[in-house]
Write a protein that binds this DNA or RNA. Structure first.
Length: 483
RNA sequence: GGGGCCGUAGGCUAGCUUGGUAGACUGCGAGGCUUGGGCCCUCGCGACCCAGGUUCAAAUCCUGGCGGCCCCA
């Protein structure tokens, strides 16, 4: 039983999310935002491991779907960056430029990539000759740089995005590219499911598409402060990039056609969402799949019985690690068990394994799950099966709790007043009937102080009237405060 | 883009209005005592964001920079 005063609290997290987030990530050694350059943070060892595990999930999904991991240069010459007119217009105010080499001015200034389409296209031009070379699917995990002028937030709005996983593909036809977009949306869904992150998929409105895309599909989730956070996007780029970069292929009939490209990305915002959605006022709660440490074994020594307690704890520890479980043992005899409990709870270790004289006498071990702090004794002889089963239960419970959280903050309303109030109170995402015209979208943004996330993918016509112009609604629009 | 608040040991902070020895808690190190939810005691370590200015004297007042947070567009 968890004592009354120790019941899970989310007061700070809910009342002052920004502070909670920065403190928790710092104290748990996930992310240190004290680096003296605006919008730049550091991943210490423990956070780096979490990041690596998250990326590992993504890598395995991509590797198993025909992608190859590549690495393109950080520097993009101005001429390339500016080839696609709309792309450059959108990014020009947020590009960092390298203008000097030592003390001499560069002839052509070099951009720190804000994203890599313009670095990849010239190489595709060299690599693609005929239809047999298509499709090409590649990705890289790199830093990208954006000179954010608005407020920056640790991990959420940064100037160096350190964990930019960008996928790029080239196809022979519009339809192939379109199909690939659908597959990548499916791949991202799997990714978020693995991380226990709930999401809403929207087709971004025309005025908020990725610069140069013909269609942008975005994943959003809801943070504890009620704002929506974009955690992934998939873009159909059409021939908007292949034309200016002159990337053509030879078709079987002997003619040439420009390739059709797509791009899709996620960033460390995914990790921010994971932390924000699962954490509580004791610290992190990390889904077992990506937890740097899945189990911490804590011996509870008593005077006279220290020897056997430590010995048993070690046995349990090696049993766990021998099956590939990421376990550690905290044998520090200078620190009390209680203090260790708090320490590892802060770090979000999914399961704590306690071994004391009482357990030894009864032939059991005590398992405590991090999400609910529920404690139970399991037979010593069945440790491994009980443990793995518990990890599964924990993952599933975390996933459903997070989905429940999102579902409760997703509102479908029919009136502008209602929408406005929900947005103003920062209750989450609001979906309203919409006539489908861009002008009503921007009117709504003005009237509700919200941003338009977009509309459902392939939704049937919404019944009702557009809440902006009162015309018959043909679709829905999602609105929210955003980051 | 506009407005406001703020920056003190690794962390959280007191002191600033009214200029004059920077204090607590936590952490870290040593020792003792303990250990099923942050024990306690002793000793030690550790800080005024940066650059100018005012002043006999600046953490404190002024200007600028860097950095952080909040609100509004």
């Amino acid at each position: 039983m968890v004592p009354q005063h120790m019941e899970l609290q989310k007061k700070l997290k809910v009342e002052n999310f920004a502070e909670w987030f920065e403190q928790t990530t710092l104290h748990a050694m996930i992310y240190d935002y004290r680096f003296p350059v605006k919008g730049c943070g550091v991943w210490p060892g423990y956070g780096f491991k979490l990041r690596r595990n998250v990326l590992e999930v993504m890598r395995s999904l991509l590797d198993n779907s025909g992608h190859e991991e590549c690495l393109f240069p950080l520097l993009i010459p101005r001429g390339l960056l500016e080839k696609e007119a709309e792309h450059v217009r959108s990014f020009q105010e947020e590009v960092f430029w390298v203008t000097m080499g030592g003390s001499s001015e560069l002839g052509e200034k070099l951009a720190l990539r804000p994203t890599s389409e313009t670095a990849i296209m010239p190489m595709l031009k060299l690599w693609i000759r005929d239809y047999k070379d298509l499709p090409i699917k590649l990705y890289q995990v790199v830093s990208v740089f954006r000179y954010e002028t608005k407020a920056t937030h640790p991990m959420i709005r940064v100037r160096e995005v350190t964990t930019f996983k960008e996928g790029h593909s080239a196809h022979a036809t519009y339809e192939d590219a379109e199909k690939h977009v659908g597959e990548m949306v499916g791949l991202y869904k799997k990714f978020y499911e693995e991380l226990c992150i709930p999401y809403i998929v929207s087709k971004r409105p025309n005025w908020d598409k990725f610069a140069g895309a013909i269609c942008s599909i975005a994943f959003d989730t809801i943070m504890p402060d009620g704002r929506a956070l974009q955690i992934g996007t998939v873009h159909h780029l059409g021939q908007n990039f292949s034309k200016p970069f002159d990337v053509k292929y030879l078709k079987p009939d002997g003619t040439h056609e420009y390739v059709w490209t797509t791009s899709y990305g996620i960033s460390e915002r995914v990790i921010a969402a994971l932390i924000a959605l699962h954490g509580d006022d004791r610290g992190l709660v990390i889904p077992p799949k990506v937890a740097p440490i899945q189990a911490v074994v804590i011996p509870i020594p008593y005077k006279g019985r220290e020897g056997e307690v430590y010995e048993e704890a070690k046995k349990v520890y090696s049993e766990l690690t021998s099956t590939g479980i990421r376990a550690i043992i905290d044998e520090d005899d200078e620190e009390t068990p209680g203090s260790k409990f708090f320490k590892w709870e802060l770090k979000g270790v999914p399961v704590r394994v306690e071994i004391g004289p009482r357990d030894i006498d009864r032939g059991v071990v005590t398992l405590v799950r991090r999400d609910t702090l529920e404690r139970k004794s399991v037979a010593r002889s069945e440790l491994l099966t009980s443990f793995t089963a518990l990890l599964d239960v924990l993952s599933n419970d975390m996933r459903s709790a997070a989905w429940k959280y999102l579902d409760e903050r997703f509102y479908k309303v029919k009136s502008l007043d209602e929408a406005g109030e929900l947005i103003k109170a920062r209750r989450g995402i609001v979906e309203v009937p919409w006539c489908g015209r861009d002008e009503c979208g921007s009117t709504l943004e003005d009237n509700t102080e919200a941003r338009v996330l977009g509309s459902p993918l392939g939704a049937a016509a919404e019944k009702g009237k557009c809440i902006s112009c009162d015309r018959e609604a043909s679709n829905s629009l999602r609105l929210a405060k955003t980051y």
